[in-house]
Nucleic acid binder design. Structure first.
Lengths: 349, 349
DNA sequence: GTGGCGACGTTATACGTATTACTGATCATC
DNA sequence: GATGATCAGTAATACGTATAACGTCGCCAC
């Protein structure tokens, strides 16, 4: 038996959010009718006139459907999770922006993980958020979260990841290998023979691909390659580049960096050593973030279509949610030649 | 009357998410008991032994509460909205990171607005998200959204905003004025007398404060000040700085920029004009983002505690949600002197 | 023995929505 | 004028949770 009805009409709170029932009352119809009309499911079930009355009432009352109730009823939330290493990395901020744009076009929201920096041992924000997700888009640099996700069998789109790891997940990739090939060919064409690779010390597919392609291409051309691992920061790169450039033996004439940030550090190291860029040393970056254009000289770098990458990731997730199986996709990366590369100059061997 | 029960036990889907009722069944208690135990509300209402049994069942079943149901029941969502102009601006990415960190500590999530770039006329993602928010943190540079928010009477924390505009909203500010004062004093102490202000052409409180404080301080010191408005981008700043520096009359010896991005553009413009920084021209930035340390010379700039700003914003919102009225707060900004400023040199008057 | 009181739970809701099954009409058709 | 068929809508759920209100048992005091 139901609880007794509250005292009729008394004590009604001043301005509580109106519900669909309030709209129904105002329009003189049932709550079901309101739901049908506002849900655009009334083709032959409600008259045009009544539908108009309902819409009118909804508007004047300022009705907003309660999403919690809707989510509960429908069992979906129109919310996707984007897993990225760090939002302070402009590249990922742009991926987010693209994903969120497409999401909004389809009434979806995008929520980020991790919120703080890394998967905390104590609390796991993803853990609690998981309950209200429809799907996940995960970058390869956040492999840690994948196990948990797979356990839940959530629809998953992987970004820039090893196809061998995808285990049935949808895939959107960037032409990283092709980009690095263009870097190598560009520098080789300029006449460089001694290379240094400033390599991010992160164990991630995307960086392994860069290293492999560079090594392969330079080996084919018979050029010399040394590698200096470095943390993914300007300061770390400056230090790593500084000691690598100061090492004994004939100095490299071209410095290939895994990321624009690293190239920025390399530029500083070069200047400290009295090397002019590009006359004495050519430097290349990767990603083509704002920084690449802010430096002097501007960086020759590989442009990655970050926003489009995010957009495509979200589109792919939507496809998966529609029950289709999207074909793997690769967005093109292309070399952008600017001022930080030139033929090996006076100082060259 | 209720619908007939579904055919007993048949057709049970393979691995549907377990509910609190499933846990209850497994532990041999009622659903209410599960809710009490897992909600830590069982002080004197459930025996220790039973509570253990419940927790055990929940664990083995891998139970996760359905957040949609919880949100519906409780009428809150533990979700806050952060309104920022653009996440690709590192400063705001860091504000987000800080806010999300504190939020996670309290079981809150943070969702961003705008998802795409700006408030679209057709669709308004905020509009739909509004229904499931507990509160809002809004930066001053996103004033457009405020009207909508105030209409809903959502708890609101304003970041870096004019106290006169706050109309009862809680406030967290940065010591922008103090930061700019330090810039002016630093350059005056170095001996500069002719200033150029590269000013963001955005009508926002934070930039008005900068302009006012700089003008005030320089006027007090009897120094000369010109202002060049510029779009908030490296390229825009390079152009604006280029023409301002090339203008007739005695050239400025100090260039004060509203943002590190603008300073980056200024550095490029200066180099193009053959001006050495800092010998011929001192340049200052604002924000102290990664870029400031990546440039050469490194920027003298005003450090803003971005993450702490976000953290404090979230803490303040939590306070408001607790029904308290937090005192307005101002986080300190401080000048960081690096390599882009020096006494006016050979070229000085 | 009965009234009372902790301790330990359970029963019965309500939250606001979307949707399925139903109900009266009205209308055309034979 | 009975028979469907179509239209226009309504009644009654269920989604999964949190919690207020209600037992029930054992035990003690009087």
């Amino acid at each position: 038996m139901r609880h007794a009805a509250p005292e009729g009409g008394a004590g009604r709170p001043a301005a509580a959010r109106p519900t669909s029932r309030d709209v129904a009352r105002a329009a003189g119809v049932s709550q079901a009718a309101v739901s049908l009309v506002l849900g655009e499911k009334w083709r032959g079930r409600v008259s045009e006139a009544t539908a108009d009355r309902v819409r009118e009432s909804a508007r004047t009352l300022g009705y907003r459907p309660n999403l919690a109730a809707r989510n509960l009823r429908l069992g979906r939330t129109r919310t996707a999770l984007l897993v990225v290493p760090a939002l302070t990395n402009e590249f990922f901020a742009r991926v987010y922006t693209g994903a969120a744009e497409v999401a909004a076009d389809h009434g979806f929201g995008v929520v980020l993980y991790p919120s703080p920096g890394g998967v905390g041992p104590a609390r796991d924000p993803f853990d609690s958020a998981r309950a209200l997700l429809d799907g996940v888009i995960a970058s390869s640099m956040a492999a840690e979260a994948l196990a948990a996700i797979r356990g839940d069998e959530l629809p998953l789109v992987m970004l820039d990841s090893d196809p061998a790891d995808s285990r049935g997940a949808a895939l959107v990739n960037l032409g990283i290998a092709e980009g690095m090939r263009q870097v190598a060919d560009h520098l080789l064409a300029l006449g460089h023979r001694r290379f240094l690779h400033l390599a991010a010390d992160i164990d991630s597919w995307t960086f392994r691909v860069r290293a492999r392609m560079l090594a392969e291409r330079l080996a084919e051309a018979g050029a010399e390659l040394r590698t200096a691992p470095t943390p993914l920061s300007v300061a770390g790169a400056r230090e790593a580049a500084g000691s690598a450039l100061g090492a004994p033996g004939p100095p490299p004439t071209a410095l290939v960096c895994d990321d624009d940030l690293l190239a920025a550090g390399a530029l500083k190291a070069a200047r400290r050593l009295g090397l002019r860029v590009p006359e004495d040393l050519s430097v290349t970056g990767f990603d083509d973030v704002m920084l690449a254009g802010a430096l002097d000289p501007e960086l020759t770098t590989v442009h990655l279509p970050a926003e489009e990458f995010g957009r495509q990731g979200m589109r792919t997730l939507l496809t998966v949610l529609d029950g289709e199986r999207p074909a793997p996709l690769t967005l093109p990366a292309r070399l952008v030649v600017r001022g930080s590369t030139a033929p090996p100059g006076a100082r060259g061997d």
